[in-house]
Design a protein around this nucleic acid. Structure first.
Lengths: 200, 200, 200, 200
DNA sequence: AATGAATGAGAATTCATTCAT
DNA sequence: CATGAATGAATTCTCATTCAT
């Protein structure tokens, strides 16, 4: 092997650094106003090096949108849709989601850009849309279970869940770069309301 | 100076046409990918004419964001926060808002872009933010009245109303270019839930 | 009409100037080493103006190869293949061809580049090749007439004429930028030999 | 130093392989479109290895033009200018030359590029020109001998011989990548005509 | 000697803006 | 006022060359 393990590690780190800075810049300034030169400078690498790791600017953007999705989607799907106490699980889930959305500020702004211009960023949009479907389906099961157990009102689950995910993304849009988790958590009750919890 | 009224009318029409097309193009393709040449072509006017009506591209964008706001804000604020039956008024208001959001697709995508990149479009963002505050304040009064009359649960009005506006904008993001008003109206119940209507 | 005739004339002149300089530069330095900046400078126009007249560099090259062809092909085909005295006509034709080839130095170097890299300049090559066929066919008729009248030896006309055109282009290659018409004319007897004139 | 003979052989082979591929690529795609990376890939060696054998791209091109010349020039000069039967020798020579030109297609395209852009490839051109002179001088002697023996017409030998070499290079340009030796050999009579053989 | 990551100079192309007609 | 040619700054991407491993 011509490449030592040490070098591999360094390269991985370099790639990661570039991608991180790209996400930051893309999310703040958009696709066009984020030049490769700016990304290179922010990452502390040379201009040409960006092209060593990402063949085109399009590719860099694509990876900036796609790579974090895997990790974040795991976190967002980390709840038990068949929990014995659906209402309790739902509240835990909402709390978790709110926390996550309060944290991954920059990346979500990138997501909003992609969705907002889905014709321009078609490929990325498709993948995000696919996750959105998976996401909603899993929540729907939990909601149905809650309704079966009479913990939730008999609302249409499709519209309920779509409203919930819309609230999440809408908060991220409206709260701009509000970083205070405490503040975010105050939206948990409103979010819960959407699911129509039975008064007890 | 010696400009006939007829000419004035024509120029107004031309300006309006340019602005309309600019909104469409800006919302679909973003600021940078919308060139003046494309706007001119879409409007059926010459290249240089755009500059006759809007001194710079920045200005064109600014007007594209600001001018429709006046009209739309009037529509959105068209409810009686001191109605004698707050819950009924609230439901009417929500229905109206959902209808409006289902209709002004293109413009709202433009709004999302501005909010999503508020550092880049600072001036426009400020004005939108200002309206957002006015908007929320008026709704808050209605909600408080509803709570006083025990039609609504005693939820924190600030967070409730911000959740409501977030849901609206979030729906616009999530439903992309869904144009069917019938479909949109199905979200009214979910939106109402946020305000915690008392079961009757 | 928004453009005055005067302006049209100026633009035509500008376009011509750019094309002329492009031919010179392309022929001397090749496609890649001829930058648009150099063409602009040589033509005394601004960088961007080149793009006003020729959308891409490829297009500029294409026109540089194609446009002069029309005029030159007319000159080269200006002989009477059915002349009553074919041998005399042939000698006049050869003399004319040699003169032309001695004059259009730069352009022919461009032609040699295209032919030499016909895979790279496929489109241009095809058109040149087409002319080459037309050119040879017309000469072949004259040669056949000369053979019928026993003024020329019974040589295979296809190979004879292809040899003749090869000699012409080969001379242009070998004589590099020799500009002296007198010198060039000394090759007429050699060129005539190819056709196998009967000794008289 | 301590380099085994075995290693030397391997390196020589590697160098040869690189040069062969370089000739192919340069001749087909020209200097600029032939990147070091492409040469490396075609040769099956690593990117950096090309630089081990050829310090710069210029040098690689230089060697690609120069190294084959030695061998080919020997072949082209392999005739007896003082043969007792000059005409017979001339015909044998022409046949041999035509065969050689039909074979070394790729390299000759490279030669045409150098001559066609002699200002750009000055050094290489000078050496090719030098050979051209040597080549013509030797043929001239043979032609003069043929004229002395009244086997050839009294034509100017300089122009005759230059016409002959022009025909050769012109055929290589015109016949593009025609590989059929049989076809090429049909040009021998035309080539012979240039020397003005006496009818017998 | 071999490898390929790192670098940055250089090139084509786009496009807002200016301005003469 | 309308038009569109002229301009050049800015951007992406390529690639020869260097150099650490």
């Amino acid at each position: 092997m011509p490449i030592s393990e040490d070098q591999m590690t360094k390269m991985q780190a370099k790639r990661k650094k570039i991608l991180e800075q790209a996400i930051l810049l893309f999310s703040e300034h958009g696709y066009n106003d984020t030049t490769i030169a700016k990304v290179a400078k922010a990452s502390g690498v040379s201009f040409g090096s960006v092209f060593t790791y990402f063949p085109t600017k399009d590719d860099l953007f694509h990876q900036a949108v796609m790579e974090p999705l895997e990790e974040i989607s795991k976190l967002l799907l980390d709840f038990d849709e068949n929990a014995s106490n659906p209402l309790e699980e739902l509240e835990e889930m909402v709390t978790m989601h709110i926390k996550i959305f309060s944290e991954v500020n920059k990346y979500l702004r990138l997501v909003v850009q992609v969705i907002g211009q889905y014709t321009r960023f078609e490929n990325q949009f498709k993948e995000l849309d696919q996750f959105h479907n998976t996401f909603r389906e899993k929540i729907q099961i939990l909601v149905k279970n809650g309704q079966t157990k009479n913990q939730l009102k008999q609302l249409d689950t499709h519209f309920t869940v779509t409203s919930y995910t819309s609230l999440l993304i809408g908060l991220r849009v409206n709260l701009a770069d509000e970083p205070d988790e405490e503040y975010w958590l105050k939206f948990v009750p409103s979010a819960m309301q959407i699911f129509g919890p039975m008064d007890t």
